[in-house]
Design a protein around this nucleic acid. Structure first.
Lengths: 336, 336
DNA sequence: TTTATTTACGAAACCGTTTTCGCATAGAAA
DNA sequence: TTTCTATGCGAAAACGGTTTCGTAAATAAA
């Protein structure tokens, strides 16, 4: 029971291929009676059009590409849901491509996209990404692209981000107001703009609260999950031990809790903690975790909406535009 | 800077289209010298072949479809990583389709797949799925399919699952050995085979430990996340309150903790808890959570491997085959 | 020398749609 | 009556690759 093609369907109907095609696409050239007949037999014979033939002929794929570092991450999986919600509405499919935080992978994927596999791209770059040539090449080749969360500032296109500077500031300020005087910052990557904005916010808040930044209190996690635990432990074992931590990445939550447990440090008594996180379980951690929570679903939704605005029209290049959504500081017991 | 096609590349090289195509595919018909020339100019002109043209002609898409209920779930996102690891190795792309636990969505997606969008499918059905006609139709149309985790038992194809019966048994037995005498079971869906196997294991363990099942102690969560909290709360508020819970779905973790907190019930003193879960944060919950942890990545990896075995050859229909991977009971403080 | 085989390439068919034309037929307008 | 227009459909040309088949030249075998 192989599925049939339009030619066989046409033969069955004693009609030409073109008539069948037009009938299925509800063309005004075809009489209502014929349309009905075509639809009925198509249904009966279980005809499903080949998407590749359509894409080839129509020069559009009805696919958008979503390029992200990782799917096992609550921020990105929620963002995917947001993206998918609008893609579905527009009749588009979502092709999810994982870079696993490798710049080489990112480059390969974007290059492939120049072949027309997708009509538009949503991108959140890897922690290794420094340049943006690979992105510029793609955009120049005519594929519209919208950044979300992790952006390249120097590419002339739209981006949807959160108020990272303010969030970094708010997190730090909150710790200061809770009495912390030695606040550490755990970053994602020295090259990511979200990281640096959060760091700037952190530094400003330190300064506003009459604290000096210590070099040893600012650390960036590695790509290897196994190395993050020793990294956090080392931070907490130094003589000048911090009494507060701003962790700008969800993945560091578990290592921080583990390291504190291992060193017999009580959260929040000895160390207070704020994490950038979309974890569902933040409220039931031991102790419950104060978070900066990004509107992940909404970010995905907005980014996709912007992309689709440029997909409808022909040759509408996206201009540099920055949509900033607010993150929320959710206070719980880890800073209590 | 639109990307060029093979015709323009051929013109540039003063060669025929067929020669260029063969050169790029490293055909023995073409001299090494010509191949080099072709590769060089292709690189220089940034030629990327159109995947749809290839797919159309070759009648294969180099895509596999992954159909799952949800991506914001640690089990499924880890499984995706496992799947992607083998797909990448084989030069395939992964098309992730979300059903959001809706049978109608699942049906639509599988029907679309009959059009040749994907060469094979990995499926984990929705909680609403009862029949399997839609799956049988797809398989009959010649698309190989492998189930993982959530299967339809009556479809003649391969499946990769975990030892659900044993896991349900182990979880319950563990609670019994910790002194529980009134153990409740929180299910996913009455129609899912994984649910029912876990339930059977639970019932057998009850019986082996001289306990009777109570109808009110067996509940199935709804699709609406907001309704799960009241459901769990109702379970814990009844006069015959359980002193142990086996939760067969990760999504119920937070509601259980919240309900216990609201009712001033201490875990594990008043209620002990085992959850089927792949949560990274299980060890830092309050209290840390005893889990049945499924080898999610491995399940994805194995399921994809089986699928690819049948993709290489022509007309190798997958036979009914069931690969059972063991889950692990990880004891933590929620049962301590 | 003639014939067979190998090597390296090109012409054209093909994959399954969509869309542009062209062409009948029927009814309306002149 | 002739001419014009609208309606409903079909033939054929795309879309951009891959593959089959044919062929000329060069080499090997007879």
């Amino acid at each position: 029971m192989k599925n049939i093609n339009i030619r066989e369907l046409a033969r069955e109907l004693q009609l030409s291929v073109s008539t069948v095609s037009k009938a299925l696409r509800d063309s005004h050239e075809i009489s209502e009676q014929t349309k009905q007949r075509v639809r009925n037999t198509a249904e009966k014979l279980n005809y499903v059009p080949n998407p590749y033939a359509s894409s080839l002929r129509g020069r559009k794929s009805m696919n958008i590409g979503v390029v992200i570092p990782e799917v096992a991450d609550s921020f990105f999986s929620l963002a995917i849901n947001g993206i998918e919600s609008v893609a579905k509405e527009k009749g588009y499919h979502v092709l999810i491509c994982l870079t696993h935080e490798s710049f080489a992978n990112e480059k390969t994927i974007l290059q492939e996209f120049q072949g027309g596999r997708v009509d538009g791209v949503l991108l959140s770059v890897t922690r290794e990404t420094t340049g943006s040539e690979h992105v510029v090449d793609l955009v120049k080749s005519g594929v519209p692209l919208v950044f979300f969360d992790r952006v390249c500032e120097d590419v002339e296109t739209a981006q949807v981000i959160t108020d990272d500077y303010e969030s970094g500031y708010k997190a730090t300020q909150h710790l200061a107001e809770c009495g912390c005087r030695k606040i550490a910052f755990l970053g994602i990557s020295k090259s990511l703009s979200i990281n640096n904005k959060r760091l700037q916010g952190y530094l400003q808040a330190l300064s506003d609260h009459k604290m000096k930044p210590y070099k040893n209190h600012i650390r960036h996690c590695t790509n290897d999950a196994l190395q993050n635990y020793p990294l956090v432990k080392a931070l907490l074992e130094q003589s000048n031990r911090p009494d507060g931590i701003v962790a700008s990445v969800e993945k560091l939550t578990t290592p921080v809790y583990m390291a504190c447990a291992a060193l017999k440090l009580k959260i929040p008594r000895d160390v207070k903690l704020v994490c950038f996180s979309n974890l569902d379980t933040a409220s039931i951690l031991n102790p419950s975790l104060t978070t900066i929570t990004q509107p992940a679903f909404e970010i995905g939704r907005v980014a996709a909406s912007i992309l689709f605005k440029s997909l409808g029209k022909t040759n509408v290049t996206l201009t540099k535009e920055s949509v900033v959504l607010p993150s929320a500081l959710v206070v719980r017991r880890s800073t209590g």
